[in-house]
Structure formats: C-alpha cells, structure tokens
C-alpha cells in the first residue's frame, strides 16, 4: 500500500506517529492492538520496521554494524535475517566493512531498508524509497520492495510523492492532502478517477493500467 501526497502533506509525520516518535492524538492500531503512545521501542518489538526518509544511518559504523544494530530487538535470528538482507541486496554483502558515511545514495537506501528488515518486521514503513536516486537504482529498490511483499510476506507501506511510481508498485493507495485523507482505495479504481488523475498522475497517465494486485498477508492494514 502506498500513501501519496505532496511535500508537507504529512506522510513522514504519519510514519513518525505510527512509530511513536512524535506525540499523537487518536488511536493507532496494529492488527487490532493499540500501539498508540507506547513509543518506538514497543513499535519495533510489535513488528514494525521503519526506513525513514533521511535514512538516519550511523555514519561512522560499517555497513555490517549498521545492519547488526537493526537486530537490537531480534538477536536470536541475526544470521538468518542477515542472510535474507544480503540475498535481497547483494551489494551490502560486498560493502560489508565500508563505513556508511562513504556509501552512495542508493547503497544508503539499501542499508536503511536492510537495517529495518533485521528486526524481522511484519509491517515495513518506507518513507520516500526513491527520492533523489538514479532511475536504475529506483527500479532496483522497487523490485526489492516487491520481493519483500511477495516472497517474504511483509506488508509494505510506502510514502511517495511520485504518484505514478506508487500506483505501479502498490495495490492500494491513500492520498493525503495537508494532513487529511483525500481519497483511498484500490490502485486500479483510483486510476479511473478523472479528478485524481489530473491532479496527481498527470494527463498522460489517463490510460494507465495498474499492475495486477497480489493480496498481501500479514498485519491487517486497511
């Protein structure tokens, strides 16, 4: 599922709120259980992984140590999770002992995603997965996100400014406008809505065909 919205629509704040990094009102439920106000340690323990927009990597730690730090709450399955991350991003295995500060933008995004996967989450929040990346790397990241959903059985929730990217990748969309939900639903349905199409997907995307959806198991996010 993707949350689409312009800069400042509240996507990152929403994710920070889900993680308990900022104070929120109302209620946040994960698979029926309230996680509202319990803080990030609880959220990670409950099975939420978060790859934030600015990555928040540990610059002077090696790639490997960055990943291992992600395993703080899941120390029993480190070998297994590390293998999973290295299968998904073979480049992280090659760059294992390099400092994160010297990695390229695409590699940092991979470290950020990999670190989030090290806690073996059921739900993965990814904020702006492709911002500022070269098209080739974008495609690589998009493919890895699909593999997390289809092969690893994760529920992946991305925040995206690029609506065309989001609609191609996600089964469901939620459109956020200055903190409020403007529209939501199956990607194919929304692609038929004239008003939304002209506002978010550009005129050319009118005849766009949404990808055949695959039902995502895991936590029930609606």
């Amino acid at each position: 599922m993707a949350i689409v919205g312009a800069n400042g629509a509240g996507k990152s704040t929403l994710f920070d709120g889900v993680m308990g990094l900022v104070h929120t009102r109302g209620d946040i439920r994960l698979a029926g259980e309230s996680i509202q106000g319990k803080g990030p340690t609880f959220a990670v323990g409950a099975g939420i992984g978060y790859a934030s927009e600015r990555f928040n990597l540990f610059p002077y730690m090696s790639v490997r140590d960055n990943l291992l730090t992600g395993a703080w709450t899941a120390r029993k399955s480190i070998e297994e999770n590390l293998l999973r991350v290295h299968t998904l991003f073979p480049r992280l295995a090659e760059r294992e002992s390099q400092e994160a500060a010297t990695c390229s933008g695409g590699e940092r995004q991979m470290i950020s995603l990999g670190r989030a996967l090290m806690s073996a989450p059921k739900l993965l929040l990814v904020d702006e997965p492709t911002i500022g990346l070269a098209p080739k790397i974008c495609a690589e990241i998009a493919q890895s996100l699909q593999r997390m959903r289809d092969e690893m059985g994760l529920t992946v929730l991305i925040a995206e400014q690029n609506a065309n990217f989001a609609i191609r990748l996600a089964e469901r969309l939620l459109i956020l406008e200055s903190g409020h939900i403007r529209a939501g639903g199956q990607s194919e349905e929304l692609a038929k809505d004239e008003g939304l199409v002209s506002a978010y997907f550009g005129k050319d995307a009118g005849g766009f065909e949404a990808k055949e959806g695959v039902k995502s198991p895991g936590a029930a996010w609606t």
């Binding site: 990094l21 990670v44 934030s52 540990f58 610059p59």
Partner: peptide
C-alpha cells in the same frame, strides 16, 4: 551517539 532517531527506529531505548 551518532543518530538518536536512527537508534530509536532500531528499537533502542
């Protein structure tokens, strides 16, 4: 010490 928010999203208290 390097990134408090990064540490928090790893679940570190």
């Amino acid at each position: 010490s390097m990134d408090p928010k990064g540490a928090a999203i790893c679940g570190i208290d």
